[in-house]
């Protein structure tokens, strides 16, 4: 068979649970060697997607390829993927140090010295039983395994739960510096988008089991803008554009529009006295994932209108 480009390839992947569809015909290529952000609301299908990559779960239909092969029962592929879940279960009889020792057995790239540094920085009590760790310390175990494993594909699923601001900063700092020295494919799933936005090179946004954004972080940055100014001027400027969000205050309007603005359009806005504000990744994600709901509601309304006529 022909190997698809990149380290991960999903073709029309659907995952159904008993009464929900977690992923709905997802097609995605991950080139690799970048830090990817996997974003989306709770229940958007992020964890399901990550589970499929390490065959911790199974697709209902479609095809999953990791390094060109299906990961299921494939030790060769699995040894190159590290995915510590947000709600990772550890053996009850383990101490924190045991979990790290186990990871050192299974990941060929494990860096024990790096792990020791992280243990020190994140103040993880190695001798303490896993059952007695706080939520933050449990997250620290996952973070240390993820970083020190240096797996070619490393997946972090909400790695910061229970970690305080200092510990999160240590994680981000270590992630960037270690990634710079040992480039690999990092997939970071997070709700704290503002915190991680600058770390990401590529963003994948999931909403209700669909990929709605799959683009370069830099490109996404100016793929939308907020127009601020007098209501009439704003209204005429945004006419014919996809509106993601609208707010008004008296005669003042602030409208977020989808799509890139040309230099000429920017100049035009300035000429009309309109202010153009950048839309942060966080705002964009909120607008885009909310918009889906509006579209669904909007698609339902014409029927009602029709019935009235």
């Amino acid at each position: 068979m022909t190997n698809p480009p990149g380290v991960i390839s999903l073709r029309n992947v659907t995952k159904r649970y008993r009464d929900t569809t977690a992923l709905d015909g997802v097609t995605l290529d991950i080139e690799g060697g970048k830090i990817y952000g996997l974003l989306g609301r709770n229940g958007a299908g992020k964890t399901t997607l990550m589970s499929l990559l390490s065959a911790q779960n199974f697709e209902t239909s479609g095809d999953v390829r990791v390094f060109g092969e299906h990961p299921y029962e494939n030790d060769g592929v699995l040894a190159r993927v590290c995915f510590v879940r947000e709600s990772q279960k550890y053996p009850d009889d383990f101490k924190a140090g045991h979990a790290l020792k186990a990871a050192s057995l299974f990941f060929p790239g494990w860096d024990a010295a790096f792990a020791a540094e992280l243990v020190d920085e994140l103040q993880l009590p190695l001798k303490r039983s896993i059952k007695k760790l706080s939520r933050g310390q449990l997250s620290a175990v996952g973070v240390i395994i993820g970083l020190a494993s240096r797996a070619e594909i490393t997946v972090f699923d909400e790695p910061y739960l229970g970690l305080d601001a200092v510990a999160r900063q240590i994680f981000y700092d270590r992630l960037v510096s270690d990634y710079a020295e040992h480039p690999r494919t990092i997939i970071l799933s997070s709700h704290l988008i503002d915190e991680v936005a600058n770390l990401l090179e590529h963003v994948i946004l999931l909403d209700a089991g669909h990929v709605i954004i799959d683009d370069d972080a830099e490109a996404i940055r100016d793929s939308a803008a907020t127009v601020l100014g007098a209501a009439d001027a704003v209204a005429s400027f945004v006419e014919g554009r996809t509106v993601l969000h609208r707010e008004t205050l008296g005669t003042l309007a602030s409208v977020t529009i989808d799509g890139r603005l040309t230099e000429a359009e920017r100049a035009g806005a300035a000429y009309q006295g309109l202010e153009l504000l950048p839309v942060s990744l966080q705002q964009l994600v909120i607008r885009k994932t909310k918009k889906q709901e509006h579209t669904e509601r909007a698609s339902a309304s014409p029927i009602r209108t029709g019935a009235r006529q």
Partner: peptide
């Protein structure tokens, strides 16, 4: 019971196939 319920989920995160 223990070696299944406690260790299997962990082994999955360690990139170990079910067969192994």
């Amino acid at each position: 019971i223990q070696s299944m319920t406690m260790t299997f989920p962990f082994s999955q995160s360690m990139g170990v196939s079910r067969r192994t």
